[in-house]
Amino acid sequence: MGAIKKFMYINRTAPYGSIYSLEGLEVALIGAAFDQDVSMAFVDDGVFQLKKGQDTSKSGMKNFSLAYSALGDYDITKLYVEKESLQARGLTVEDLMPLTYEDQDDDYQEKPSIRVVDSEQLADIIAEQDVLLNY
């Protein structure tokens, strides 16, 4: 395989209402096997994927929100959340799951994976990507 490329998965849909967010998560986990520089962005209704306290026991669906906690194990450690999307939905970063990863370059210290960025910052990050995948 050639040089490492920057892959970004852009998630713009809420969980459960459609299959997109689960697909996006699964493809990101599968793609993580290819040793690329992978990040995920959560924009628009995509921010709802990271809402903490999801409980599907009464609706009979699989609670795949638990799998986001495994992203660190898959070396997906950059989860960008757009501030404006959170605000429009009455949410703050405290409403999101406290996702972390262990930094291999820093004595395996546990660090937060979620980075809240504003639209302008996210536009810059998107502009730097080699491959963008949308869900």
Partner: peptide, 13 residues
Amino acid sequence: KYQIAPAVRVLTK
């Protein structure tokens, strides 16, 4: 815990 079956690399780690 995570609702996924881990890939071999993740399992090993």
